[in-house]
Simulated scan of single mutants.
Amino acid sequence: MITTPMGYLLTISLIVAFFAFLDLKTNYKILKYIPAVVLIYAVSMLLASFGIFEQNAQIHHIYKLTKTNLLPAMLFLMLLQIDFRHFLKLGKSLLIAYALAVFSIAAAFILTAFMFHFDANISAAFGALAGSWMGGTANMVAVGSALGVHEDAFAYALVVDSVDYTLWVMLLLFLVPFAKFFNKFTKSDENLAYLGEIGCACSMGAKRYWLLIGFALAVSLFCQILATKVIILNATTSMILFATLLGIAGSFTKLRTINGSSEVSTTMLYILIALIGSNAVIENFSGLGIYVFAGLVILFIHAFIMILGAKIFKLDLFSISVASLANIGGVASAPILAATYNKSLVSVGVLMAIMGYIIGTFGGLLIGNILLRLGSI
């Protein structure tokens, strides 16, 4: 049994390092279907469930301290990668498709909450899931923390995200050969040649990990202090919103050109996932199947609105598919789908997915609070 804070953090770090190594250096097929974040969470949760981590005051304190310090730092670094100038070059069809995807996901979550009558805990968990399906796992962690999602309920969100997202990716890839039939149905303009000239927000060069870590932790400290002075809903929500706004502001400066923010923020995200998993106990789970089904209902409503919007605005299958997966799948999968249409369109998937880092936090918080209100009725 692990009883000390240092032993606890060392174990968390080893779990993260192991799965990060597998993800980067191996070609195991399991990682294509089950993301590293899910495996990190699962192993950490199993250790907690078997009593490896002693739930004493010292470990609880270091858990809370590490999570509080890393969360705003991670959000800040994630948002530094955005380049709004490139995003605005996507063109009318893709921008409409992206806006339609965000709206349809929001509407689908709210309608599904009406149908399933979630309690407060599950409503908060699905609010976190909304953050993920509008942005990414980082947004899920941020929204879940702001809404006070219990560690056990967070596992529901992660499983629904993993299972339903995998099915959604398979469906969108299956539909690629039928693009011409769909485009004929919507009477869209299939000319996407100009998109191949758009670059992504990434740049090449030496990594500046230590500079980024130091700066991100300084921003984290500033956000925590500011959150005690200006409270929006609660201190955690304030801290997250301030980190988000500072990250957006930083993306307009030369900070965006400092390489390594993606790697550092991803490492911080993995540690946060492992920390949350270490406070979950597997025996508390029940009725998981109904929540996976609820996730599928959300995707069905989202798909119906997207198809209807494509018909009204004459959008092509590429635009609505990549816009959808940029939200639901993020940077890991949207570029892959874009490449199946044309390899020169990979950067389009990257740009749309990166924008989700902003939308996911604000959208998830909004939907989460709506779901909580619905759950209290």
Rank of each mutant, 00 (worst) to 15 (best):
F126D: 07
S44P: 11
V292R: 07
V37H: 09
E263R: 03
I312L: 08
V143C: 03
K64P: 00
F50H: 12
E151N: 15
K92M: 04
K180Y: 12
Y291K: 09
I282T: 05
F293P: 00
I307Q: 03
I359C: 04
I312F: 07
Y291H: 14
M74C: 13
E190L: 09
G7C: 08
S278T: 07
L90Q: 10
I358D: 06
M6K: 09
G349S: 06
V292M: 11
Q224D: 15
A274K: 03
I2D: 05
V43I: 13
I240V: 15
A108V: 02
L226Y: 10
A73C: 07
R256H: 13
N183Q: 04
S344K: 11
I225W: 13
F76P: 03
L288Q: 05
S261N: 13
F116T: 11
L255C: 11
T253G: 08
G287E: 03
S238V: 03
L374W: 02
E54C: 05
A249D: 06
F182W: 11
E263W: 03
Y156M: 07
Y8D: 11
M170V: 15
K32Y: 14
Y194P: 00
A57M: 14
C202S: 14
A17D: 13
W210M: 14
L171Y: 03
L129P: 05
Y98F: 15
N27H: 13
G205A: 00
